[in-house]
Amino acid sequence: MKQDNYLFKWSDIGDINEGRPNLGPNTPVAVYRLMQYTMRSVLNREFGAEKSSGLFYKSGYIAGKEFCSNLLDTQLEFYDFIAQLQKTLKDLNIGILRVEKSNLETMDMTITVAEDLDCSGLPITNEAVCDYDEGFIAGILNHYTGSKFSVKEIDCWSNGERICRFQIKMV
């Protein structure tokens, strides 16, 4: 695995089918969260919450770009692309993406993610925790449009909401 120069490639995930012929590609959400929140805990302690949050955003951003590049058809029209993204996120049990508002001229959007892989069911801490998701969404949109986007989570399960709500603006 490469170090911190963002050289991650989709192929770095490896051949799961070959490697896990019996256990298969799926694992419980708890395992995913176990890894994320223990890592977050360490990073928080080592670098502080703000720095840690930034690292998760960057990781999500790289993941979003690779995800878009390898799993999504970027030739589709915008709304067809969104429909495809919704379906893929649902098929992969990442979350249920819904659009509340969209403006194609300014490329501003408000979206929600229900049953989010990262946070749905977390204890309420009055802190938004989906910084990885923010980066993930920004990475996907950047790869699709070629433009930079700012993605900010304005509602989160850990804030006591039932869904995560993200405000998206083109930079």
Binding site: R98, V99, E100, S102, I124, D155, R162, R165
Partner: peptide, 28 residues
């Protein structure tokens, strides 16, 4: 405006979210 940190109305906020999405869908 959606009230923050108000757990009493969480189900209504979910309904609000669903309705907002539905309005967007109907617009589409």
């Amino acid at each position: 405006a959606i009230p923050r940190n108000n757990l009493i109305i969480s189900p209504f906020k979910q309904l609000h979210s669903n309705l907002s999405h539905m309005v967007w869908q109907v617009q589409r």
